[in-house]
Nucleic acid binder design. Structure first.
Lengths: 108, 108
DNA sequence: ATAAAATATTCCTTTACAAGAATATTCCTT
DNA sequence: AAGGAATATTCTTGTAAAGGAATATTTTAT
């Protein structure tokens, strides 16, 4: 459903949001806990979580008057899949730069 | 030398730059070729390549009056490594949300 | 019903950054 | 040496987005 690498990368590119994601690796947390652990103000914590949620990186569950946020796994799997599409680049024994240079030479 | 995930993510978050990186998966290219294939103007192509270079995602080799750009592998490996640090999150059989909810219950 | 706690939302200001256009630089060719 | 090709740089402008402060919303407790 979501292989939107761009959206995932944009959401993760913001330092505070990256921190939030890293914190959530250890398990679900409420907004207040996230704000406290990362020393963020509550409003910006909520806003960042909103961005992460919109990008599909995070999901919420309401519990009493608080919201518990946890990571979604799909976008991370997608990102991992995308990264593996680079695999063959490193696999190649020869440096394709040499190949390219020879190709240039041949144009004379 | 570089495990700067933030820098890598920021550089990749820009759509055109992501395209450039995806294009370079298939091998080294000159600025002109990149600009042509992605239908970008040369100045912005150079600028995006500059950003990618500064972030360490790409390296240049001067050849005649052109510059050949190719991907660096380290940052992608780092990113892959970072992603695998999420592994244990999905591995866990039980949803830690349940665990968290029980912990909340216990606070009464 | 009211107050208080937890979270979300709005408004404003500031900043970062990408696009566009023009120009500068570098290197080759003749 | 001069001209042209490939690339880089500068300057300006427009825009998206992050931070701060204040306020609104929702839920629980009394």
């Amino acid at each position: 459903m979501s292989a939107n690498i761009n959206a995932t990368l944009s959401a993760l590119a913001e330092p505070k949001r990256l921190q939030i994601v890293e914190l959530l690796r250890e398990g679900p947390l409420t907004v207040g806990e996230i704000a406290e652990k990362l020393e963020l103000l509550q409003p910006q914590t909520s806003k960042h979580l909103g961005v992460l949620n919109k990008a599909g990186l995070v999901e919420v569950k309401a519990q009493a008057n608080m919201r518990i946020y946890k990571l979604c796994q799909q976008p991370f799997k997608d990102l991992d899949g995308w990264l593996s599409s680079f695999g063959h680049v490193w696999e190649e024994r020869f440096d394709r730069l040499d190949e390219y240079l020879q190709k240039l030479q041949g144009k004379d």
